[in-house]
Each structure stands twice: as structure tokens, then as C-alpha cells.
Nucleic acid binder design. Structure first.
Lengths: 172, 172
DNA sequence: GTTGAAACTTATTAAAC
DNA sequence: GTTTAATAAGTTTCAAC
């Protein structure tokens, strides 16, 4: 659903205008999704009542899509993160389905991106060690007939740059 | 800090053993980071007291690294997400620093991965439209002397597969 | 938009089992 | 680990400004 703030959109179908308060609220909730209403209000410079109203509106309009705990993969013994590019032999619906079926249930995949370019898919995969990585690439990915070619990039350093809202707010 | 559950680690320096309750808690908190203690306890099949204790322990040991709101990039008018691979002319500390300085303040970058392979960095970038994408690639990335080559993959479909804990729990 | 108060829900702690 | 009870804290709604 498209967010729709009554009268706040300057152009029809244009980007929604979140004002400075909204942006501050989103930045604060990105940083701490469990901040209390009072603390949030103080942080953004509003009184609790309108602040709470804005949060509810942001939730209802889909700007805030939910809340989640950030879990350390290392806590599960998953110490290695890799990006695996996958090229399919052909892009027919059957081939795509075969590929997606094969990877769907794999818990080590945390992101599956369908992309344009020389490759078809880009997967983010967490594994415990090199043995687990080899097993995943050979026995899971490359054993799928539809998969023509894979290439694995080990992630040496990951900088997750906060969320969009945090960065937008920093710039504003 | 390494999580350390008293006596729960089967091997020294081995993967920490999170029991079924811990995994259920993590899965539930991934799905809804704002679930109440009572609801969480009911969901995982514990009474509130030990459930709350476990959550606190998971937080203190760094298994839970925090909580965050999920923000819709589209709410900011950012409709296009791309992965940009970057190859540097050389990997000298100066070149790396020059590159990182150039991209550090860019709010459209939400992820910066240092990777092994034919490329050096993989960036996840959100932009409003093709104009903004062209501007970013040409004026931000390719204007950095240290950048030798970039390649842009437009993300046609993004399946963010829950978090690790959710997927681990599904398998268990 | 602000404040303040009341009613309600939730969280936390302690004690006993 | 469980339950119960008490205290403390946070949330929501309302009225008035």
C-alpha cells in the first residue's frame, strides 16, 4: 500500500513528503526499535501525544514495515559470509522454478537477489566454515541442473550503513 | 564479546549452543522485535520469568545486537535498488582510503562489502530514479581516481529471507 | 501543535514451590 | 524450570488549551 499523508504529497504519485519530525522518528526507531514513546518524543523534539500519533501513522501507511531484533550470525556459529553469483543455463520459467525450489529451504541463504547483467542471481550466504561453504556450493547450488555457473566472493568486511532513514537524516 | 553460556558450550571455542527455547525466542524476536514478554513467553512455551531472563541474557551476551524498525525505502521515494561492483586501480592503503572517503557520506549506500575475487567492493545502493543512478555512478563513483571500473546490477527482485534465526528455527 | 490526568497494559522483581 | 503477587514503568485515550 502506498503511504498517503493527507495533503502532504506535493505532486500526485510523487514521493511522499516526510517532514523533519517524521525523518527524526524513523532515524531514532532505526537505531533503537524499542525506544519508549516518551524517550522518542524527547529525542525528536515533540510531545508524546503527536509523536505517538506519527509513529502509528507511519506504521499504518507502511513506511514502518515492522520491527525486528538484530541477531548476530556468529552466535549461531556462522562465521563466514559470502556472496555467490549464479548464472542459469537458461531463464525459462521452468529453469527459474527449479533453481528457486532448490534454494528456497536453505537456511544459510539470507538474501536472494534477481539482478540484471551477466549473472542472474546474487545470494548472500552464511556458513560456519569452509567445509560448509564447499558443501553448499557443490552439493546445493551446482547440483541443480538449471545452474550453469557460480562464482563465490568471500566477504572480508561488511559495513552495514544503518538504514536509509538514518542516513537521510544525517544528510538533512 | 563472545557469548558465554555457563557450561553450555560443548567444546572450547566451539559454536555456542543455543537450545530450542533460545532459538524460538530469537525467531520470534526477528519476526516481531516489539512482541511483549507475555506473548513471547506463550509463543515459545515458557513462563514469562525465565523467558524474560533468557532474552536479557541473549542481549547481554551480544546474540541479540539490538532492535530496529524496518523502514520502506519507497517511502523515501527510493524506488530502485542496485548492486554496484567496484574494482580499484590498486589496493594500496591510500587508494582504499580515497575510495572509502568518497563513499562514506553517501546516504544512498546502505551496504558496503569488501570482497575477494575479481572485484574489490560490492555496494548496495538505493536511488529514486535512473537520473539519480547515473549521477551516483558517474559523479560519485567514477570520479574517484582510485576507482578503476564499476559494474551495475539492477535488482529486479529482492527476497530477504528473514533472519538467520528464523531460518535456523524453521529447519529445526 | 501542547499539557496533564486517568485508565489500562506491560515489565520487573521477589518469594515460594 | 513454574506460579503468584506486588511494585514500577510505559502506553493510550481523553479533555482542555
Amino acid at each position: 500500500m502506498k503511504p498517503n499523508f493527507e495533503g502532504k504529497s506535493p505532486t500526485p504519485d510523487g514521493p511522499f513528503v516526510l517532514d523533519a519530525f517524521d525523518r527524526k522518528i524513523l532515524a531514532a526507531l532505526s537505531e533503537n526499535g524499542r525506544i519508549s514513546t516518551l524517550e522518542l518524543a524527547e529525542k525528536v523534539g515533540l510531545s508524546p501525544t503527536p509523536c505517538s500519533r506519527r509513529v502509528k501513522r507511519l506504521e499504518e501507511t507502511g513506511v514502518i514495515q515492522g520491527y525486528t531484533a538484530k541477531i548476530s550470525p556468529a552466535a549461531f556459529g556462522l562465521n563466514i559470509c559470502v556472496m555467490v553469483s549464479v548464472r542459469l543455463a537458461k531463464q525459462s520459467p521452468d529453469a527459474v522454478r527449479e533453481f528457486l525450489d532448490a534454494i528456497e529451504a536453505r537456511p544459510e541463504i539470507t538474501e536472494c537477489l534477481l539482478v540484471t547483467g551477466n549473472i542472474d542471481y546474487l545470494l548472500k550466504v552464511w556458513v560456519a566454515d569452509i567445509d560448509a561453504l564447499r558443501h553448499f556450493i557443490r552439493d546445493v547450488l551446482q547440483s541443480v541442473p538449471a545452474v550453469a555457473e557460480t562464482s563465490t566472493m568471500v566477504i572480508l568486511n561488511m559495513t552495514e550503513a544503518g538504514s536509509i532513514s538514518t542516513r537521510i537524516e544525517q544528510r538533512a
